[in-house]
Design a protein around this nucleic acid. Structure first.
Length: 564
RNA sequence: UGCCCCGUCGUCUAAUAGGCAGGACGUCUGACUCUGGAUCAGAUAGUCGCGGUUCGAGUCCGUGCGGGGCAACCA
């Protein structure tokens, strides 16, 4: 885990915590929390927040809670709760026995609301949602007081209690904080605290028909759990004054909210809403589609938890709205996978090679290194015989100057095996090359020529008779543009990359691939990092491409105008 | 024509309490190599503008410009 041995990052949040520790603001405690709403799957943006919150707790010897902000039963479900628990655990974090649900605090929240009503700081409003909007004013114009704003405490108490008992239909009444309808911060214009929702809750059943709003609930949740630093994203900055107001009116424990910029990544979308749209429309294959930036999707794609943690740690934390390059993510993934992935050989688009001077029916085994970065991974035997497959892209009949691979009359090395030279091509009726005739040099077993002659390329290969058939799913960027949301008036779906998934059937792998288990991560030499998908069948594995290897040749081709 | 927040290489991010603007990714060179992988060496490129304070400003003050957020009974 080289990526995690980097020094602990410094950022403005840790500076604030250092300062609070110095001034003994919270008696030297550091207690954070990760508070997702169970209304979708977690994505890499959440991973940033998870790493931040759990990471800070770890570094300071504090604690981090996992708390579900389940205040809106119309959008939430237990399935989402489970997927979130699964994702956080997979990322490698532990919340001990501190798994909490906002819904478990509903009684206390209700009592506190009654408290506010008693203090004349909250009232029951009969305005409709639409009217509330009208009375709120605009960004530049002050709002007006609701005609129900000055009801007596007794009447408010009675009405609120009857709301709770279910006497009123959905939307007919709300409980509102009594603050200031002319406040320059819109959030302070008598925000709604409770709405009536005759909807059963995935944990509370039908116990409630009034549910707290985020602004009212969230600060209370943090207060109840004695959180010291409530870390959240920038869009809640304007809500902090309200969060503070509630806590001060109630006179309860007061955490410090700190906002940071959410993660944006190029070539993808990072909002649960957009992700949900893609899933619902069937534009991807579920929440764990390997093309999605969901944690479940990236996991299925083959990203390791360590690489995701390394990425999150090293992108830093700031208040500047930024977009991280997808290249950076891939860099950390490759960095980790390079060190940890066993190497195997597989040919994705097979081209048959017949070694004319190799005895028919003979098979030998060559020794291959499992991981050049980790000698302790040992070696393995790979069968070699007269008929082989190599990659179609590794042969060109009339190669350009910079093409180093096999061509008529040219000699290359077969990895760990022999030097071979191409002596001819065999075509089908349509003139397509279907087979290469080659000779091998028996003196080069293992790959080195006794006379010291060099070759410019080493190719991966498999023995036709011993190969295992497999399917590969080649994933590419989900969108064709860096910011799919960036074009005014265009829907982000217009920029979906039609080539984001290419299924390659008929791949041939060396036999040892048959011993892999689901989710095992490997590198197919020269082709990229892959992992075994759960769709694999016995004897016919399915591989997801996690990332390609850096490919200098592909870069040259792209730059020099692809003459292939 | 309101309020809040933010502007450092192409990108992300450092610069302990004002003191040589550094790192990473990307890109480009080169070395090495039985993965055109990995590794190594080098190059590239930045403090949004204008004033002010100061011996000294990315950092402090003012102002302009630019970007983001806010008008759900969502979070």
């Amino acid at each position: 885990m080289a990526s995690e041995e980097t020094p602990v990052p410094r950022d403005f949040i840790r500076d604030i915590i250092d300062e609070d520790l110095k001034t003994k603001r919270y008696d030297g405690r550091v207690h954070t929390r990760f508070p997702p709403e169970p209304n979708g799957y977690l994505h890499i943006g959440h991973a940033k927040s998870i790493c931040l919150n759990f990471g800070i707790a770890e570094e300071y010897g504090g604690l981090c809670n996992l708390r579900f902000d389940d205040t809106n039963p119309t959008k939430e479900s237990e399935d989402y709760v489970n997927s979130i628990i699964d994702s956080v655990r997979w990322l490698g974090f532990d919340w001990g026995d501190r798994l909490y649900f906002a819904s478990d605090y509903f009684d206390r929240m209700f009592d506190w609301a009654v408290d506010l009503v008693r203090k004349g700081k909250a009232y029951v409003d009969d305005l409709t949602a639409e009217q509330i909007g009208e009375y709120r004013g605009t960004l530049t114009l002050p709002g007006r007081n609701s005609p129900f704003r000055d009801r007596s405490v007794e009447e408010n108490l009675d009405l609120f209690e009857r709301m709770r008992k279910g006497e009123f239909p959905d939307g007919s009444k709300t409980l509102r904080a009594k603050i200031d309808m002319a406040h320059p911060n819109m959030n302070m214009r008598d925000p709604v605290m409770y709405r009536i929702l005759h909807t059963s809750h995935h944990r509370q059943g039908d116990r409630w028909c009034v549910y707290p709003m985020y602004d009212w609930a969230h600060g209370l949740e943090d207060s109840i759990e004695a959180i010291t630093h409530s870390i959240c994203t920038l869009e809640f900055e304007n809500h902090r004054p309200l969060y503070d107001w509630f806590i001060d009116q109630l006179g309860i424990y007061h955490p410090q909210q700190i906002e940071f910029a959410r993660l944006n990544l190029t070539y993808t979308v990072m909002s649960k809403r957009m992700l949900l749209e893609l899933v619902k429309a069937g534009l991807v294959n579920g929440w764990d589609d390997p093309r999605l930036p969901t944690i479940a999707g990236m996991r299925r794609r083959g990203y390791s938890p360590a690489s995701m943690r390394g990425f999150c740690k090293r992108i830093g934390v700031a208040k500047f709205n930024s977009t991280v390059s997808f290249d950076l993510l891939e860099h950390y993934v490759r960095e980790d996978l390079n060190m940890t992935s066993p190497r195997l050989m597989a040919v994705f688009r097979p081209l048959k090679v017949v070694l004319e001077n190799y005895p028919e029916g003979k098979t030998e085994e060559v020794e291959a290194v499992n991981n050049p970065e980790a000698p302790s991974a040992g070696t393995r035997k790979v069968p070699f015989s007269r008929v082989l497959y190599i990659e179609q892209d590794d042969f060109m009949e009339s190669p350009p100057k910079k093409f180093f691979r096999l061509a008529p009359g040219r000699e290359v090395r077969l990895r760990y095996a022999y030097l071979i030279k191409c002596t001819g091509v065999v075509r089908d009726g349509g003139g397509r090359i279907v087979e290469l005739r080659c000779t091998y040099d028996p003196a080069t077993r293992g790959g080195d020529a006794p006379d010291g002659r060099k070759v410019k390329a080493t190719l991966h290969w498999v023995s036709a008779a011993h190969a295992l058939e497999a399917e590969a799913r080649m994933y590419d960027k989900l969108f064709t543009v860096e910011n799919p949301m960036g074009e005014a008036g265009r829907d982000f779906r217009e920029f979906l990359n039609p080539a984001s998934l290419e299924v390659v059937a008929g791949c041939r792998t060396e036999p040892s691939a048959g011993r892999l288990g689901v989710m095992d991560r490997i590198q197919f030499e020269r082709m990229g990092y892959f992992c075994v998908d759960r769709d694999s069948k016995l004897g016919r594995p399915v591989f997801n491409r996690t990332a390609t290897l850096k490919d200098t040749w592909a870069k040259i081709q792209a730059r020099d105008g692809a003459d292939s």
